[in-house]
Amino acid sequence: MTTPSLQKYLFLIIPALILVLSVAVVFSGEEGVTQIYRKAIDPFDDERLVDSVLSLPEDTVLVKERYQGGPFWTETRKDKMERFQCSQCHSNKEVTIAQAADIAHGDIVLDHGGKNKPLSCSICHHEAERDLLVTEKGVKVDMDHSYQMCGQCHFRQNKDWVGGAHGKRVSYWAGKRVVKNCTSCHDAHSPRFEKRWPEAYSPPVNE
């Protein structure tokens, strides 16, 4: 009497065991770095945990957008420009400098916007207030916030830059987020990087 019922149970128990084990195997296979980082949802407390984080460098400016971690900073531009402010020359006054021709903008190569529809000066520079840039909508933009200018057309890069997939952080991965400005890497007048020789070479992988 007992034997057939035990057999019946065994037919149930064995598949159940197999099912449980296979589920366990499947889930243990999902453990990995992807699973680990997906579980981590609490923001990392840089200030408390990294003791060597430096204070904000002086030549930075608070970006007028926010990234997923809050406010962030970018490198300034105006203090690195050779002849800022522009209004020193570009004003209603007559230019009285002897070497005006030398310090004019003959060195600027404009290669921006493609061959068919190249950009001209006044597309970015404000015609009346020469210290400022101006967007297509007529909003005046400070030179330090050039990302607002570039982001008009390069909105995809701008989104990546805000999030962190375009551009790069300055020196530290921890602490307050300071990133390079668009103009830290790109020449606004010819933004594509120039071709050049590599600095080194790599042997094949198996050497």
Binding site: Y37, D42, P43, F44, G69, G164, A165, W173
Partner: peptide, 14 residues
């Protein structure tokens, strides 16, 4: 891009 994988606000997570 380098950063902390356990930090949801990091660049690497983005």
């Amino acid at each position: 891009i380098f950063g902390n994988l356990l930090d949801p606000k990091s660049e690497i997570r983005f």
